[in-house]
């Protein structure tokens, strides 16, 4: 056998051994045996000294080529075996990914708070301030300054929780409009405010009445505020809460503190305007009352009606939440059954 043949045989055998080997230690042993200084290739190359000067470099080059091929084959086999080893280990680590995860506790904001926060953020974005006021109000701010003088039917005892002749639980959020008018200095710019909060009525609690509920009032007073501005603001608000596509109806109404006044209806959620039990067959659901601030209210707040005017609006937070989420009993909001509260997890 020529040296070259010996080398070729060696290559064949080694390649077979490499393919057959199944663990990394054995592979390493082959590497040491085949490519090491005492290995067969080195051994074969010892016979080179018998070769001619012409043949010697050729065989040498051939031997190096074989060495390189075998080294590559070993590396490839090593990678293969390592991948297999990892795969085996990972297979051992397999979990039932359908088992439940560890519960992470997160409390839920009350749905009424969610509606309020949403509205606050909307109006803050339009440059409004948020005003809190007092839950225990006086007659002056709750009624008198809002164009409801003494003996006005709205001031009757039956609807209001009085504490003294002068003090009462506020029946709406409008007192804060009166307070704002009273305190505002137009040198600091126009009034743009909203006021969400808790109000009280002398009512018997049932599915649609509550002696305590939430309202939000808002007002804008400046030099050139128009009813068109009111309409645009209300459309923007209602579409934000109830969705863009919903039909709206603006109809004239009456409130002591605005003139002209308007009530806004939205197309019924259930029947979309055809008429059903929810909308009492009218196709419409009332959601909001508003109007241009009555001159008597401005005057009571010390505002020059020749220069300034504006609008005010009021909406029921509970009513909004009931309509938006299909809640059919207002008492749910105040009984705090955790199963009721925790369903409103979407936040915003």
């Amino acid at each position: 056998m020529s040296l070259k043949e010996q080398l070729e045989n060696l290559q064949q055998k080694s390649l077979q051994d490499i393919q057959k080997v199944v663990d990394l230690d054995a592979l390493n042993q082959i590497r040491v045996e085949v490519l090491g200084k005492k290995g067969p290739i080195t051994e074969v190359l010892r016979g080179m000294r018998d070769l001619s000067n012409e043949e010697r470099p050729k065989v040498g080059a051939f031997a190096n080529e074989i060495k390189r091929d075998l080294a590559q084959a070993i590396e490839a086999r090593k990678a293969e075996l390592e991948a297999k080893k990892v795969a085996t280990q990972l297979a051992h680590e397999t979990l039932d990914v359908t088992l439940p995860g560890q519960p992470v506790k997160k409390g839920t904001p009350h749905v009424l708070t969610q509606v309020i926060d949403d509205l606050e953020d909307l109006f803050i974005g339009m440059g409004y301030q948020v005003v809190a006021g007092y839950e225990v109000e006086d007659e002056k701010h709750n009624f008198e300054m809002l164009n409801m003088p003494a003996n006005h039917p709205a001031r009757d005892m039956q609807d209001t929780f009085y504490i003294t002749d002068d003090l009462l639980m506020r029946t709406h959020m409008s007192p804060n409009e009166a307070r704002d008018l009273e305190n505002h200095d137009f040198a600091n710019g126009p009034i743009k405010m909203i006021s969400p909060g808790r109000v009280y009525r002398r009512d018997t609690d049932d599915a649609t009445h509550s002696h305590q509920f939430y309202q939000m009032e808002g007002q804008v007073i400046d030099k050139n505020i128009t009813m068109a501005d009111l309409k645009g603001t209300l459309e923007y608000t209602i579409h934000h809460i109830f969705g863009e596509g919903r039909d709206l109806r603006f109809r004239p109404s009456y409130f002591p503190f605005t003139e002209p006044s308007v009530e806004v209806d939205i197309a019924c959620f259930r029947c979309n305007g055809k008429g059903c039990n929810v909308c009492k067959q009218t196709g419409w659901i009332e959601v909001l009352g508003a109007g241009m601030t009555h001159p008597n209210v401005l005057k009571a707040g010390g505002v020059d009606t020749e220069v300034y005017g504006g609008f005010a609006f009021g909406l029921g937070i509970d009513r909004f939440a009931m309509l938006k989420y299909g809640v059919d009993d207002i008492r749910n909001f105040y009984l705090n059954d955790v199963r009721f509260l925790n369903q409103f997890t979407q936040e915003g």
Partner: peptide, 18 residues
């Protein structure tokens, strides 16, 4: 009321913030 235009108040800027 349906024939009234829809606009938003313009005029002096106000900043809204909590």
């Amino acid at each position: 009321y349906d024939n009234l235009p829809s606009t938003l108040p313009t005029g002096d800027m106000t900043t809204g913030a909590l």
